[in-house]
């Protein structure tokens, strides 16, 4: 979900995404673990990829969001806020006791 949100923000490539996630406080087990996720997202048609020449090395594979991905993201975000609100409420209740 976070990957999809990042891509929705702006088209990006793997390394950049991993760095952004870390910069926002999400520590990954390994940076490479985003690729299985990206491949699954692409397989489901939520994102599409294109190549951009890179100065030092092979061309970079950028990912951009597809309309179905935008829709899915809205859906997931809705689910997530429900869960996090719920958990938040439960925790708040716990503090009062």
């Amino acid at each position: 979900m976070c990957l999809l949100a990042l891509i929705a923000e702006e088209s990006s490539y793997g390394y950049e995404m991993a760095s952004k996630l870390q910069a926002r406080g999400l520590e990954l087990v390994s940076e490479g673990s985003i690729y299985p996720l990206l491949s699954r997202l692409q397989k489901r048609g939520y994102i599409d990829s294109y190549l951009v020449e890179s100065p030092g090395g092979p061309p970079r594979k950028y990912y951009r969001i597809e309309p179905s991905g935008t829709e899915r993201l809205r859906h997931w975000a809705g689910e997530w806020s429900q869960v996090s609100d719920g958990v938040g409420e439960v925790l708040k209740g716990g503090h009062h006791v």
Binding site: Y13, G14, G32, Y35, G57, P58, P59, K61
Partner: peptide, 15 residues
């Protein structure tokens, strides 16, 4: 495809 993607990531990470 995957090899190139991984390579560019590794190069970036290394630098």
């Amino acid at each position: 495809d995957m090899r190139n993607e991984l390579e560019s990531h590794l190069i970036d990470a290394q630098s």
